[in-house]
Structure formats: C-alpha cells, structure tokens
Amino acid sequence: MTTCSSIIRAFTDPAGTITLDETARHRRRMAMVSDNGISFLLDLPEARHIRHGDGLLLDDGRVIKVVAEAEELLEIRARDRLHLIELAWHIGNRHLAAQIEPERVLIRRDHVIEAMLEGLGATVAPVVEIFEPVGGAYSGHAHGHEHHHHHD
C-alpha cells in the first residue's frame, strides 16, 4: 500500500485532496482514501495536527492536499479584550479545544458550555467554519499529556 510518512507545506499540482474535520486531522497512523479515490496509509513518526492546506507526501512522490471540513462551532465574543481573556480562561479550565483569535474564540458546540459562557456575559452564536484549535502545551509529544509514575 502507498504510504505517507511526512507532511509538507510547499507543493504544487497535488494528485488529489482529502477533506477531514479537525478530529480526523489529528492522527499518527490510519488508512485513508483521498476525495478522488487514492488509498494510502498515513504513517507518521508521531501524532500531530494536520492543518488545512498541508500536503501529505506519498512514498511514490504524489501529494494529497488536506482540506479542512467546516464544522458546527460556537463563536464566543466578549465586551472587551480582558473579558475575552477571562472567557478563554474558563474554556481552558474545562480542557476544551479552542481556536483563539484577537476578537473571538471558537469551540465545538456544547449547550452546557454555551449556557455557562452566556452566564459569564459572553455573546455566543452558532457558526459553521473550519476549526483550527490552538495546540496544547503537550502538542509536540506523541502521546499528549504524559505522566510517569513509579510503582513499588
């Protein structure tokens, strides 16, 4: 089977595209099929977030362009920048994936979190957009948040 073991940013003339939501764009190893039917095995050295516009370089030299699928999200806006920072803190305190921008924060739709944010004075609106959340403090690690415990 054709394999992809690297992601590239600079490429021209892709052999196809693959449309993936945010969850499907955070992978290490997975059988995939491009939008035009090219089958390949994604086999990266470690799990990573694949971004909209990235190229999946196949071992035969072809490139599959990643297209981020629009998702149902919540757009959170605040009274001012300090309020937005406070709202982002509450979102982060609940370990939610968030796309943080200068004037708004985007999160996955969740009616409980929506009610909490409105209670904190946020303006919350449903939107359908590409979701590119901020990588966490552990996003460079293959296994995310790791703990090492010594057991006697």
Rank of each mutant, 00 (worst) to 15 (best):
I113Y: 05
T3F: 04
L106S: 02
I76Y: 01
P102S: 07
R109Q: 10
R94H: 12
L56P: 04
H95Y: 15
H49K: 12
I76W: 00
G140L: 07
G140T: 13
A88H: 13
R109P: 00
E101R: 12
G53T: 03
I100N: 13
I113R: 01
N93T: 08
L82P: 08
L84R: 08
S5D: 11
E114K: 10
N93Q: 15
V105W: 01
H95D: 15
R79T: 13
V112T: 09
T19Q: 04
V112K: 10
R94S: 14
V128S: 14
W89F: 15
H83N: 04
P133V: 09
H151C: 05
I64G: 04
V33D: 05
A122F: 02
H145L: 15
L44E: 02
G135C: 12
M116L: 14
V66C: 05
E114T: 09
H95T: 10
I91S: 07
L96D: 06
P126R: 05
L74N: 01
L41F: 07
E86M: 10
D110P: 02
P126Y: 00
S39A: 13
A78Y: 06
H151V: 04
I100C: 14
H151I: 08
L120A: 09
L120C: 06
D59Q: 02
I8G: 05
R104S: 13
V124T: 05
P45S: 13
R25Y: 02
V112E: 10
I38M: 02
L96A: 06
L96K: 10
G140F: 09
W89A: 12
M116R: 11
R9Y: 04
L87K: 07
D21I: 03
S34Q: 06
R94C: 11
V33T: 15
E86S: 11
V66H: 04
E72Y: 08
A68H: 03
A88V: 14
V128H: 11
L96M: 12
P133N: 08
I38S: 01
F11G: 05
I130C: 06
I100H: 10
R94K: 14
L57A: 09
M30L: 11
E101P: 04
P45Y: 09
A68R: 01
I91P: 00
V112R: 10
S39E: 13
A98T: 07
L57E: 02
D35E: 07
E71C: 03
N93F: 07
S34V: 09
T123A: 11
M32D: 09
I50E: 03
E22M: 09
A125I: 11
A68E: 04
Y138I: 08
H148D: 12
A115T: 10
D80L: 06
A15R: 00
R109Y: 02
D21N: 15
I76S: 00
E72K: 15
H111R: 11
W89M: 12
H49E: 08
I130D: 07
E72R: 15
T17V: 07
S139L: 00
I38W: 00
I91R: 06
G37C: 05
A68D: 03
G121M: 03
F11C: 09
T23N: 15
F11E: 10
A10V: 13
G16D: 10
A24D: 14
G144T: 06
V127M: 00
R79H: 11
I38A: 02
I107C: 05
I113S: 07
M30T: 06
S39D: 10
G61M: 03
